[in-house]
Design a protein around this nucleic acid. Structure first.
Length: 261
DNA sequence: ATGTCAGTCAACGACTGA
């Protein structure tokens, strides 16, 4: 089994113990992290190496920052894409060897966008447009591809605790969902929806207003798989256990498992 | 009810972003 996960840790500095505890129990082969909020010279590669993970990362102080932890050595690392001369470290692609050959992993920390219609929202839409064009190229080069991360878009109303309250709000607007649809149209499937799921499964809950306790969340952390990988996907779920811990990230890991026999 | 966090700067509180 090949287990691949995505987790927005909201500061790897604070959350390193959570990551070590979770990887110890869940033992994913590949773990994509977002919002590490660390410059590269402070990335805790040694502690992760001791836990059995190699790391590639693209960070900056204070904001953003992405990493891929893996049992195997990553190659062909990409951190920047055409059309985005962007100091924000949100993109990290790498190729990982597996039992079925190389798998291309694309880790995305999609722009939040703040409010529909804001300047940040316009940046989000432009960012998605450029990233989608690049993903099309990646998809043409890599038959086996997994695109995962914090998409900052809830795919549809099933992914929202209160769809009416969120109607056309940031993370849920028609324009954002259409942009996500154009990524699905590249042949990338939301692995979570390949399986029957319980209602009200979310991956992010606001720190405010006891949102987690009240089950007021969104499913915005996704694991998408190319056709060749989707047909091998045997499970996809959110592991909310880390969200219950002390001093948690506001996100929980999204996990997909693939049959590589 | 934007009422929580995290990081930074600069100085222990204001700010930004999420």
């Amino acid at each position: 089994m090949l287990k691949i996960a995505s987790w927005n840790v909201n500061s790897l500095n604070v959350r390193l113990p959570h990551v070590l505890a979770w990887t110890d129990v869940a033992s994913p082969h590949i773990l994509a992290l977002q919002e590490t909020k660390l410059p590269d010279d402070r990335f805790p590669a040694d502690a992760l190496q001791e836990a059995g993970y190699q790391s590639v990362f693209s960070g900056q102080p204070t904001y953003n920052g992405v990493a891929i932890l893996s049992r195997q050595t990553a190659g062909d690392v990409v951190t920047d894409v055409p059309g985005l001369d962007d100091p924000q470290r949100r993109i990290l692609a790498a190729t990982l060897p597996t039992d079925i050959g190389d798998v291309r992993i694309v880790n995305l920390y999609v722009v939040n966008g703040s409010e529909v219609g804001s300047e940040k929202f316009e940046y989000k839409m432009h960012w998605l447009q450029q990233v989608t064009a690049w993903l099309a190229e990646e998809a043409s080069r890599h038959d086996r591809m997994v695109v995962l991360g914090d998409f900052n878009i809830a795919p549809d109303d099933r992914d929202v605790h209160d769809p009416e309250a969120w109607r056309e709000k940031i993370l849920c607007s028609t324009e954002e969902r259409s942009a996500l649809g154009r990524i699905f149209d590249l042949g990338l499937r939301d692995t979570f929806r390949q399986f029957e799921q319980e209602e009200k499964v979310f991956s992010w809950w606001d720190y405010r207003m006891n949102a987690f306790r009240r089950k007021m969340g969104l499913r915005i952390d996704l694991v998408l798989a190319s056709r060749a990988m989707a047909k091998r996907c045997v499970a996809s779920y959110v592991d909310i256990e880390p969200r219950r811990q002390d001093r948690p990230s506001d996100h929980a890991p999204a996990v997909a498992e693939f049959d590589v026999s």
